[in-house]
Design a protein around this nucleic acid. Structure first.
Lengths: 202, 202
DNA sequence: AGCTGACTGGGACACTTGACCCACTTCTAA
DNA sequence: TTAGAAGTGGGTCAAGTGTCCCAGTCAGCT
């Protein structure tokens, strides 16, 4: 049954992600990972040749995963400000609920940057963030009948930078109130670049 | 000669920073550090009880260091946009010249977050960023005779988030042109919150 | 000169980690 | 039912790592 091999690989990737989120990349040893997955070391090296191969799979997995995230909640709201603020809040709630997850993303990115073999992944990961931001902005614009006074590409870049900054700030100081104010600023920043062309909806 | 002890500690901190910047936090083993410093292992444990003690000193060092940075270039310019853009460019040039340094800052921050003993440092580090941003904004405001339509605190937070995002984005994709456009967006974002009250200078 | 205490070199120890391996079990398919 | 492949358990190995120790050196003071 050749599929089982893939299943085991997937299980190990999942276990590795759990360990990384809980204890950090440096703690994601082969033994810790197989313990999390409830396997023996032999099974690990049956599924993966080396630990790096596993880590590489973990990273490509989370990069692919990114595509699906944030495709979600984009509540239609009265105006741009409210909509952006709402989307930010949705993201922030997710972050507050699973800080380790975002932390793991950051750590994995830094890990890739240090590895000559995985070095090409960070731009890809960041690129997927950018396209996510772009589709979000386009969707929002259409939803509200709005044109942007900045190229979508640049706007997406700005949004991603702001989101990263928000994430980083909150991870560092865990100040909910400050994060809230920052989200307000971000929302008003983004709406600055909105220009309603069509008739206001209803 | 009791001073030599502090000198050696300082030398080891410096060597550790070099190693961390070059090879990452995980590669900063006691042996790698003393090799960089040209000492023997015994000297290390004569100066520091444990490796964690050294790392802690490294982190507090870079946090303190932060205070002095960015106190620098704030060229007076014609308007807010040009001034902000100039300051960003100055920072970016620094980043481009020593990417490993900023990368090391990030890694050290994540390292602290994982350590129960060092866990209180990230908020402090981030706080020092914030005060740096605040003084920068205040100085810029005075220089151009400008009032901000947002509390300085919130504006500083926004600026720091944007700078972090810029840093992160460039570290990830090394796209100079995109970074330039992002800095344009940031500059125009910040100047949105400027409100010239006094007469235009000269 | 001799002594004391700061400092160092080199080795050692206990432990972790990635990788591997061989005998053994379990399941599938003929 | 049985051969053979898929999968596993447990042990092993070499490299690396943090920590410690002990015999020695060297500088400064009496």
């Amino acid at each position: 049954m050749r599929l089982a091999a893939d299943d085991r690989r997937a299980a190990l990737v999942q276990a590795a992600l759990t360990v990384i989120a809980r204890d950090g990349v440096h703690a994601a040893t082969t033994r810790a990972i197989v313990a999390e997955a409830g396997m023996s070391l032999a099974s690990f090296h049956y599924a993966f040749r080396t630990r790096d191969e596993l880590i590489r799979e973990v990273i490509t997995f989370v990069v692919d995963q990114q595509e699906f995230v944030s495709r979600a909640a984009l509540e239609p709201a009265g105006d741009v400000l409210a909509m952006v603020r709402g989307a930010l809040q949705a993201y922030f709630d997710l972050l507050r609920e699973h800080p380790e997850r975002e932390q793991a993303m950051f750590e994995l990115m830094h890990y890739s940057m240090r590895s000559p073999e995985l070095g090409k992944l960070p731009p890809i990961q960041h690129g997927s963030y950018l396209t996510a931001g772009r589709t979000l902005i386009e969707a929002g614009g259409e939803l509200l009948g709005i044109e942007w006074t900045l190229p979508i590409d640049d706007l997406a870049r700005l949004l991603v930078a702001l989101t990263d900054g928000l994430t980083y700030a909150w991870l560092a100081d865990r100040d909910d109130a400050a994060a809230g104010r920052l989200m307000d600023s971000i929302a008003s920043t983004i709406s600055t670049f909105a220009h309603s062309t069509e008739k206001a909806r209803r």
